[in-house]
Design a binder for these strands. Structure first.
Lengths: 192, 192, 192, 192
DNA sequence: CATGAATGAGCCTTCATTCAT
DNA sequence: GATGAATGAAGGCTCATTCAT
């Protein structure tokens, strides 16, 4: 089992890249096959269809991201400020290493019926909300609408990625992680 | 020329609504025509094609929004905190009155080559950056990377709209404007 | 009734020009209207439709041409050679003055069911055949298949027009009428 | 790869037949597909589109014809009269065996920008002109405008084909080749 | 007479998908 | 596993024609 499914990997990478750039509806099977250097029919050896493929890739990528993010936010023996800062750093490094993957996940959220996601137990936002609630219970954050706080933090952290992706922000987010983390702490009302 | 363009308006409203919901690539001419109660060919009397229509509507909607937003941020005789708070309120009321229009503008930014927008002189983000820079010069905000600050504020303000649109945030943003504005002030390092 | 139907004339001229250049099927109502500077609906004030218009114009133009050609070939007191030479000259001058009209007539012959033409009594080829037959009876031309002779002469006379129209023949046919007429006489076996 | 392209051939034959009968603009993709017994999309596996298909078929058919015609006109050890007679016979037999192909080539010349043809190096008329010029140099034909002579001969030879195709000439051209060849010799001023 | 918006059918093309090889 | 021809259903767009103004 030296290098099996090498073409499959190519197709998946091509799909993620194109989905991240053109969106799900804007990407065709032919686009994916061409970029991967295979023919159109090859895709159906591995997936039942385009939407099925996108959905599976979406689940996989979200979980890969979430499963790495979760322990960072929950690390024991670290202050909230430290964990939050590391979380932001992690996201931006993830974006540096796998920009298409991260943007794919961000852009694709409105492409599937919301029922899909809850059924699949995929909910990175919920993870953040849970994290914030537990910190409120612990007294580190003043009690407030956790979903709103999540939205504020999420927006502040991810928007620089869009701005960089689309050329408005010249500095790479990895270099701005400290400032962004500080802003998040202020959003949450934490004195550093 | 009694009541011209009544069907045209219907087509435009239908298009904006569908573009906001399904995206540009996910919306068909037939969708638009059906929802507007006309036939497909009618669209071509007013627009050269689907993409052309989307682009023109995008320009129009962005400008309608921006031209109302600008004086709010520039109002003389008001503190920065006041103006920013009013700006957030304006955005959320805009979203209440014309949710499709606002979401259309937000979602559509990545659908056109970025060259298009700069060529057309359409740049609401640039407006925000300019606003922040002038406040830095005036000393109201500590000097920093204005583009980054814009991204942070933009993300924090708009993400609640997505969250509400997609059902995660139950409270309507109009009721949260005060909290969001306060968070923005903290992001910018302003003591209220 | 000073200058009525000025727009009608413009539409007819535009139609003939476009039919001659792009063919009947390759020309649209919008093409005609645009080139004539009117709107599409205006055409239906004068004609029942595109094909109807083409057919009427075709009949009109063929008859205008044929009615002028006939007396030239039948002129009494002139030798066959003289009449044939004048006929060729006439055709080429016609092409100089109204190139679109002539080419329209030439190209359009296969666009209508052949039944149409015989029903309408339009048959310039038949005129030539009749002319040749009467000359055979008169002894000026050796008896032969008159239709074949007509085809040979017709081809030899008209092909230079195509060649000039499409750029292969640089000299204008009017300057070549003498040579072409001489060739026609040789085709018919007449010693000048 | 047992019997590939069998459907492709069918599509090409159908296209040539229809183009020859209704012209390029008058033939639809559906016409071609229906006559070939395939669906419309099948065409796009082999050609980029209708016009592209027509252009490629046109080039192919012209070349197939020209490459067979050329050696006939250049055969050594044969008089000019012999070679010309054989050329006419060849054309008419070609028309008998592949009437659609020949008519397609004749009718389609005005459907493409003339630039196309010269760029593609396709020029059967040029071949005739070259042939005539070399015979002039050799003294077999009196010096004259070679392009004009080509037009005269071309018209005389091909017009009978149109006349037969459209029903005016009842005798099949193959039976008239001798008379037509004789007429061509007279056009060129050659005593048999 | 003329306009211009609108129609409905049809055209060229693309798409996701299937299947024999 | 992979190919590439083929399909059938849309998709975007155009066309000849109609009609209220």
């Amino acid at each position: 089992m030296a290098r099996p499914a090498v073409k499959r990997r190519g197709m998946e990478a091509a799909a993620i890249s194109l989905f991240a750039t053109r969106g799900l509806a804007g990407t065709t099977i032919k686009d994916i096959a061409t970029q991967a250097g295979v023919t159109e029919g090859a895709l159906y050896r591995h997936y039942a269809g385009k939407n099925e493929m996108a959905w599976q890739l979406y689940c996989r990528e979200v979980q890969a991201f979430t499963s790495q993010m979760e322990p960072i936010l929950a690390r024991s023996g670290a202050t909230l400020a430290e964990r939050l800062t590391e979380g932001v750093k992690f996201i931006y490094q993830y974006y540096r290493k796998q920009p298409d993957s991260l943007v794919f996940v961000l852009l694709t959220r409105q492409s599937f019926p919301s029922q899909y996601l809850t059924d699949a137990g995929i909910d990175p936002d919920g993870m953040i909300v849970g994290f914030l609630r537990s910190e409120m219970t612990g007294g580190a954050i003043t009690k407030a609408d956790a979903t709103l706080l999540m939205a504020l933090v999420r927006g502040a952290v991810l928007e620089p990625i869009y701005m960089h992706r689309y050329g408005k922000l010249k500095t790479h987010p990895t270099k701005l992680a400290g400032q962004v983390a500080a802003a998040c702490l202020r959003i949450l009302g934490i004195d550093e």
